[in-house]
């Protein structure tokens, strides 16, 4: 098992803010909108340095998405930002018609996705956003795993022409990917090469997958860990190459199992190369209030769950 260490913990939303600051300095067409959550989205530096390129919409997300679509007509690259719950589910039709169907170069960039939003509870903990966004034709869906990857992804999506959903979160988590990484949309990142089971993880679950890989290694199991930061378009080649080697798989995401990353992988497996797949995700349930760590444990979104599912996938393979 390849060794991953970290010297600090940071929130992925701060990675977004850092990426936006870079874009403010390097790409004059980048503009930002926010629905009364500047601090939460870490936009302070971008706004301070580019006040004329920031649009405060107030608590009016539908209007924000429409304005973002309009700003692209004139060559701007708008980042429409808020919490993931309000930036996707609340404004699904606005994104569908004015952004996706109209093929506008809008970046829907959302923080506080998933259970790790914590104490605010289920009203704010969206676990359906990946599914909602990936169903839209032409929409790219990205869920980076740490500060550095989120920063790199933010810069990369500005260079890409087309609608993107960029999903990140609230809590501080280990920073373990390189600061100088080049982010390639749609290209999976090989975290650890292995032979016994493929673990496909996205977002906050990537670090948990690494922890799971170390536990499995102690049991003599050599897990292949792949970071699927781009859920759509999925790196089908990487998925198939891995499962052809390992013969079984686990998906891990901070999202409903219905319609998330695991289902995207399952589609590939049943069509091209069937192997047993076990899901780590929320099973048809809303979240609740609690600390992020408590919630991830209660809902089975941690290293221990990934280990358990990996063992089950291997057992099914060998049955």
């Amino acid at each position: 098992m390849k060794k991953y260490t970290f010297t600090e913990k940071k929130d992925t939303r701060s990675g977004f803010g850092a990426g936006m600051q870079v874009l403010g300095q390097t790409n004059p067409n980048v503009v930002a909108l926010c629905a009364d959550l500047i601090g939460s989205l870490k936009l302070d530096a971008f706004i301070k340095e580019n006040p004329e390129r920031f649009f405060q919409t107030g608590i009016a997300e539908a209007n924000m998405v429409g304005i973002a679509a309009g700003l692209t007509i004139g060559g701007k690259i708008p980042f429409a930002t808020t919490f993931a719950n309000f930036g996707t589910g609340r404004v699904y039709d606005q994104i569908r018609q004015s952004v996706a169907y109209s093929n506008k170069n809008v970046k829907i960039a959302c923080s506080h996705a998933g259970l790790t939003l914590g104490e605010d509870g289920a009203t704010h903990q969206i676990l359906e956003d990946i599914g909602l966004m990936k169903m839209l034709p032409g929409m790219t869906v990205i869920n980076p795993c740490d500060f550095n990857q989120t920063k790199a992804a933010t810069i990369a999506v500005a260079e890409y022409e087309g609608p993107v959903y960029l999903r990140f979160g609230r809590p501080v988590v280990p920073v373990f990917t390189p600061a100088d990484q080049k982010f390639e949309i749609g290209k999976a990142w090989m975290v650890n090469e292995g032979t016994d089971v493929s673990i496909f993880a996205t977002g906050h679950l990537v670090w948990e997958a690494i922890q799971a890989g170390e536990i499995l290694a102690e049991k003599g199991i050599n897990a292949e860990i792949i970071n699927i930061h781009t859920i759509k378009p999925l790196d089908v080649e990487a998925v198939l190459a891995s499962v052809k080697k390992t013969g079984c798989a686990v998906s891990a995401e901070e999202h409903q199992v219905n319609g998330g990353l695991g289902d995207s992988i399952a589609q590939v497996l049943v069509q091209h190369h069937y192997v047993p797949l076990e899901y780590v995700g929320v099973n048809d349930s809303f979240g609740e209030s609690g600390t992020p760590a408590q919630l991830m444990e209660k809902y089975g979104l941690n290293a221990a769950s990934i280990v358990e599912k990996a063992l089950k996938a291997i057992e099914r393979k060998n049955a």
Binding site: G66, I67, T72, P78
Partner: peptide, 11 residues
């Protein structure tokens, strides 16, 4: 459409 028009006007 009014939202989109506002965005285009601000651009």
């Amino acid at each position: 459409g009014l939202s989109v028009s506002i965005g285009a006007a601000q651009a």
